[in-house]
Amino acid sequence: MTLFVLCFILFLVGMYGVITRRNMIKIILGLCIMEYSLNLFFVLIGYVKNGVAPIITKGTEQATFVDPLPQAMVLTVIVIGLATTAMLMAIAIRLYRKHNTFDIREINTLKG
């Protein structure tokens, strides 16, 4: 309950950064923070009290496992997140080479 609310506050902090910052790098960092909170929310939902990690070894055949499905989904999301972050960084550095600034509003007002 408390954890869900805190997780959502983390998401809102990331959104605040995306809307109000002027620096492109800061906007990318805000997007990454939103992605982290989303990953955390998935794993929080799948947690079972006194559960063990979903790996079958000797002695854990009868134990309660935490839900492995959200973990499998988040595993792919993390790696894709790195690739998309790198792509945003590539776009940012290209814009910096052309306009010599990271300021997104200044780039917006320039023509051509």
Binding site: L44, Y47, A53, I55, V66, L75, I78
Partner: peptide
């Protein structure tokens, strides 16, 4: 939260993100 797979991936991905 008993997700060791995610912990390993997140650790290394975080380091590579910082480097980039």
């Amino acid at each position: 939260l008993k997700a060791p797979d995610l912990a390993i991936v997140q650790l290394v991905v975080e380091i590579i993100t910082l480097i980039i």
